[in-house]
Design a protein around this nucleic acid. Structure first.
Length: 740
DNA sequence: TGGATTCGCGTTTTT
DNA sequence: CGCGAATCCA
């Protein structure tokens, strides 16, 4: 790797530092020892990190290969690469140690795989494969897969890996009664199986590297990395999990030059093992650490920032910052209560069109939802209005069925003992190889301790199988052997095209008359052409597992639709935040599973949402939301109450029935308050409800968790709802279903 | 074995 | 409600 400085570094530096404030400059230039940049939303965290990286290079303190720069998502990595490259006058950044935790750990692990019993061409399994593997192991042990969902066991295994724990490092009291207390045994078996498959899951990439680096026998490996990396840079430090933290700490021990940026108020990945503690503990972990605080927000106008501050101020578990801005107060946050999801989408559509008429660009607007299913209503409405929109997130390219199938073929070609891959496509397209045959094959494989592929070869040489099945299997092995022989002589994209053709996989989708089949064939074509850019099949497989994103074309004007999680690190002029209802946001599940901690994480998510906006935020909640096909009546989120009155402008559709939070509703449509207590009554204007088919004569209200159903009486034009003894529970738990 | 039909559960969030 | 999985039937 060569690197040349084209200009006088000081001159460059002057341009880079141009508009940094003194605190930022300190963070950037403080060059030795550990630094924690504790900074709020919109204060320029990533910018500080990028500038520091450029600064280190330009001042000649480090060469490109001597800096390890870690981000959390591929998107952030891409962006940092772009920015550094720009700052360096267009330098090529390929090959630099700049990427996500997973991709960098994978890159390291390729070099040391034998130390953990793998070879360097190991395959990377995704969570789907993981679950299937766990399921197989459980079935092999005659465990009841119905009452002990493999998914839960797989989640437990992942969680241990996120904590940096190998099976041998788990204490008995950590095991718990999941899967009849067999979870640890399954973890062991799982790891053994992974070795035979020569495979890693996401968690293994880091776990194995930690295992290697902390083993005194491998001191030479660790020394090598210590010599190599003079500086470590970490983005979004608040989202690191224990495994990532351990990996960083091992690597940082050499130079002790670690610079992390983060915001405890934006920690939103607790469910995936992120530990806010990592950021709170920084000074203890890295001796001599400097803390640089950035509290001036450059993104949002006053009301937006104060609204966000008001909400996050309700969290107890935080370091405590109060962001300020020198921008003007700007517009207040608009808050709306609406009848249902359709009305909400209509309202958003109206506002969008109004803003467009005033000259705002769709590219500067985003709708941020808590969960994916909320997107549909907006999509429908946007289509009706002819508004172009772009959905970010959703199933990734490589998670699509057809892509995973195609990859499975390639995996078998690369490694014929990849049983999971072979099992996936052994009867896809249909070849007449059903469950019975596969079980026979597996039985043989297990008995002889060989791979499925080898078992097929063995059994086709005996008379054990029916002639028809035997013939099919022989043909399959023949095909694979032929494809394998192409690997050295033929370009891999050509191999892929050949395989998809000769296996009948393309033909299968061509024959399929489902509406999405043409799209799948398109995707397969895209896959083949994407392969062109890679040196080898192996490289491509790694890329697709760890890096590849949906390639969205950025031409034209789009309003962006995505989850709050997806929006982290982004900003827009105008942001819509729909669905602020108890149970949806904050998510009921989050609160049930993690109590106050869960609630506070949800609140941080609210904070992230509000602070994405530069000029204007819209927040909304509805009285009725359709979930799982039935209607749920909802009450406004507690986060709505936490918005300071002076920063918002609030209104609701008239005539709405909504128990509680009556200060946020126009209650003229019903008599009195319907609180949470026994025998309270609320009335719904029947005209409104019946047009949607929401409620009608004979519908029932029942309390989901609290038992006894309660009948709705229809009295003239009003609905009369009675709550039973469970009425002191929240109404959000009641469902309304059609009485048939 | 595979197609057709019923069943049952899910919706957080992602590398 | 809508999808994938389990189950049923030819």
């Amino acid at each position: 790797m060569t690197f040349t400085i084209e200009h006088d570094p000081r001159e460059e530096a002057a341009t880079i530092y141009n508009d940094l404030n003194p605190a930022q400059v300190e963070a950037v230039q403080q060059t030795e020892g550990p630094i924690l940049v504790l900074a709020g939303a919109g204060t320029g965290k990533t910018r500080v990190l990028t500038t520091r990286l450029a600064h280190l290079l330009q001042s000649g303190r480090a060469m490109p290969g001597q800096i390890l720069a870690v981000t959390f998502t591929n998107k952030a990595a891409q962006e940092m690469k772009q920015r550094v490259s720009d700052a360096m006058g267009g330098a090529a950044v390929e090959g630099w140690w700049l990427g996500t935790f997973h991709s960098l750990a994978a890159r390291m692990l390729r070099h040391h795989a034998p130390l953990v019993g793998l070879s360097s061409n190991f395959t990377i399994l995704d969570s789907d494969d993981q679950i299937r593997l766990v399921k197989q192991l459980m079935e092999a042990r005659d465990m009841d897969v119905k009452n002990n969902p493999p998914k839960a066991v797989a989640a437990q295994i992942s969680s241990w890996k996120d904590k940096g724990k190998n099976p041998s490092e788990i204490r008995p009291e950590e095991v718990g009664d999941l899967a009849n207390g067999q979870s640890l045994a399954l973890y062991k078996a799982y790891q053994d199986r992974m070795k035979t498959l020569n495979a890693c899951d996401f968690g293994d990439l880091l776990l194995h590297m930690i295992t290697i680096l902390k083993d005194p026998n491998n001191a030479i490996v660790l020394d090598d990395y210590h010599r190599r990396f003079k500086y470590l840079l970490v983005d979004e430090y608040q989202d690191t999990n224990v495994a990532q933290y351990l990996w960083l700490r091992l690597l940082a021990k050499g130079s002790n030059n670690i610079c992390c940026v983060g915001d405890d108020d934006q920690s939103i990945y607790g469910w995936r093992g992120a530990e806010v503690d990592n950021i709170l503990r920084f000074e203890k972990d890295f001796s001599g650490a400097k803390i640089v605080r950035l509290e001036e927000n450059y993104r949002s106008t006053g009301h937006i920032l104060s609204a966000a501050n008001g909400v996050i101020g309700n969290n107890t578990d935080r370091l405590g910052k109060e962001l300020f801005t020198s921008a003007g107060a700007g517009e207040k946050v608009s808050v709306r209560g609406l009848w249902d999801g359709a009305a909400e989408a209509r309202w958003v559509g109206e506002e969008v069109e109004a803003l467009q008429n005033k000259g705002d660009s769709l590219n500067q607007m985003a709708v941020l939802v808590r969960t994916g299913f909320q997107m549909r209503e907006f999509e429908e409405r946007f289509i009706q209005l002819g508004l172009s929109y772009r959905v970010i997130g959703g199933p990734r390219f490589y998670e699509r069925k057809e892509i995973r199938d195609a990859l499975a073929y390639l995996r078998v070609i690369m490694q014929s003992h990849d049983d999971l891959a072979l099992e996936r496509i052994i009867n896809t397209p249909k070849r007449g190889l059903g469950d019975a045959t596969i079980q026979t094959l597996y039985k043989h494989a297990r008995a002889k301790i060989i791979s499925l592929y080898q078992a097929i070869i063995d059994l086709t040489q005996t008379e054990e199988l029916k002639p028809k099945v035997r013939g099919t299997l022989m043909k399959l092995i023949d095909d694979f052997e032929r494809w394998k022989s192409l690997v050295d002589s033929t370009h891999h994209s050509e191999i892929a095209a050949t395989v998809l053709d000769e296996s009948g996989y393309n033909a299968m989708w061509q024959a399929d008359k489902a509406p999405d089949s043409p799209g799948r064939l398109e995707n397969l074509k895209e896959l083949v052409s994407a392969m062109d850019e890679f040196e080898s099949l192996a490289e491509f497989l790694e890329h697709i597992a760890l890096v590849l994103e949906n390639n969205s074309n950025n031409d034209g004007e789009f309003i962006t639709l995505m989850t709050l999680h997806g929006a982290k690190g982004l900003e827009f002029d105008i942001v819509f935040l729909p669905g602020w209802e108890e149970g949806l946001f904050p998510s009921q599940r989050s609160m049930d599973e993690n109590g106050l901690k869960g609630l506070e994480e949800e609140r941080r998510l609210a904070y992230v949402g509000i602070t994405r906006a530069r000029r204007k935020s819209f927040i909304s909640y509805v009285a009725n939301r359709r979930m799982y096909g039935s209607w749920v009546n909802a009450i406004p989120s507690r986060f709505v109450d936490e918005l300071p009155e002076e920063n918002i402008e609030i209104a609701s559709e008239s005539g709405l029935y909504a128990p509680g939070r009556s200060n946020h509703w126009d209650s003229s449509g019903f008599g009195g308050h319907a609180g949470f207590k026994t025998e309270k009554r609320g009335h719904i204007d029947l005209e409104r409800t019946s047009t949607d088919g929401t409620y009608s004569m004979g519908d029932r209200v029942f309390h989901d968790k609290f038992g006894n159903g309660t009948i709705i009486h229809i009295d003239g034009s009003k609905l009369d709802i009675k709550f039973d003894q469970a009425g002191n529970k929240r109404v959000m738990d009641s469902f309304i279903s059609k009485a048939s």
